[in-house]
Design a protein around this nucleic acid. Structure first.
Lengths: 235, 235
DNA sequence: AGTTTAAAACCAACTTGCCTGTTTTACCCT
DNA sequence: AGGGTAAAACAGGCAAGTTGGTTTTAAACT
């Protein structure tokens, strides 16, 4: 009786995580292969979770689904993350890192050779912010943030991260606009950008999305320029 | 032995719905008592559902919880609403009506005797919009809207309502500002207000909420005034 | 080197609890 | 009495977490 139980009745229909950014498969007989494979499994579970959050929402993101998306057995997954909340914790941290990185990347494209803020530079930074809130990482994080409103455990996890993120986020903005002297006004401008972009992103405009977004960004650029001018007159 | 069945072994820790707007208890032996009582039960279930959405979120709003909050048995509830989604459908319609009503009420406080938009009038309407997005009805609706992104059945229910709401919402704004001629710019201004307010409301600012909201509203008022001026110059 | 041993990774089945919708039973008003 | 209303019990399904076992890797020992 060979038993052959390894037919693997696991059904893993989605290989989403794998398609996005397949990490180089570690070679066996290498030193520390196990550790590397373990890390890759963890990573694919995190990516799968994000995919689930985007496609199914927080409530419908079950441990079984995550495992399927990641292409691992539920047992394996529970080995790396002993509970659902443990996965979420890891995802929150992962997104924290990822979002900051992506934001900085977008902002680094904006260089400001004249050392003074032109209308054009402001416009570019506004458009970068719009790109930013349309990234998957932003949407996935919002899903967690929204769920945390009524999930005490998740809130405990996400709250300190959120605080830290906002701080670093604002600091990054300050670094991108070093000539902007008046801090209070910079913060106000920052709020304007964030709130508007968030509101737009979460509105899922059903009609004329592109045109309306463009118009809003035009208005926003104008007011930001005004705020900047005033801010530097005062100094 | 008056029977006083209202001892209600149901544990209904929250009497939220009752506190908000206790309808007059219908008197027995009145004509149509049953119909009235039935209507009141339905109403209290809707209010209870809204309360649940606010406190627990869509995913955690179970039929049993709703019944508890409403102070009815689950059986009674299933009599009036044969399924969970049926309740949600009714709540969506109820909120549709309620939100429009509340918005119009807030806007009706703004009268404009000079028949021309002053800075002050704009400021008041902005503040009304801020009040509006801080109403429970707004938050409850957002909860449903957010859930509908990943719940196909709910989306089918809420999508047409959402479309109709946006239309009526914009129409109301037009009615409040009849002197605002240039329609395109009015729509742009409307978008600015809605997106900003939504973004702020959903940001749950943890620090200096009041001051930041005030500052944002000041900026918003300024840009709206500018848009208005330009709009009327063009005409 | 080759074998043994411990640990890490993985897998499938079970348990328990909760949620929904249904059915059954009881009630009360006209 | 009987239609409309309410309460309770029930059945089916699903998801989280646990358990017990198997395979794979790394290291220790002879």
């Amino acid at each position: 009786m060979g038993m052959e139980k390894s037919i693997s009745n696991q059904d893993a229909p989605h290989s989403t995580a794998a398609t996005t950014a397949e990490k180089k498969r570690p070679q066996r007989n290498e030193k520390g292969w196990q550790a590397e494979k373990s890390a890759m499994t963890r990573w694919s579970i995190l990516e799968a979770t994000i995919q689930c959050l985007l496609e199914l929402g927080y409530a419908n993101t079950t441990t079984a689904l995550i495992a399927n998306y990641a292409g691992v057995s539920r047992g394996a997954m529970m080995h790396h993350f002993p509970s659902r909340m443990t996965v979420m914790r890891a995802v929150v941290d992962y997104l924290h890192m990822l979002r900051l990185q992506e934001y900085r990347e977008l902002m680094s494209d904006i260089d400001d050779p004249q050392r003074t803020l032109t209308h054009q530079v402001i416009r570019e930074s506004v458009e970068a912010a719009w790109q930013y809130v349309n990234l998957p990482s932003f949407l996935a994080y919002q899903e967690l943030l929204a769920a945390s409103r009524t999930d005490a455990e998740l809130r405990q996890v996400i709250e300190p991260v959120e605080k830290d993120f906002e701080k670093q986020f604002l600091d990054t903005a300050k670094a991108v606009f070093p000539h902007w002297q008046n801090l209070s006004r910079l913060e106000g401008a920052h709020d304007m950008v964030q709130f508007l972009m968030k509101g737009m992103a979460l509105s899922h405009m059903s009609v004329r999305k592109k045109a309306r977004a463009k118009r809003v960004m035009t208005y926003l650029t104008a007011i930001l320029y005004d705020i900047y001018q005033e801010a530097n007159l005062i100094d």
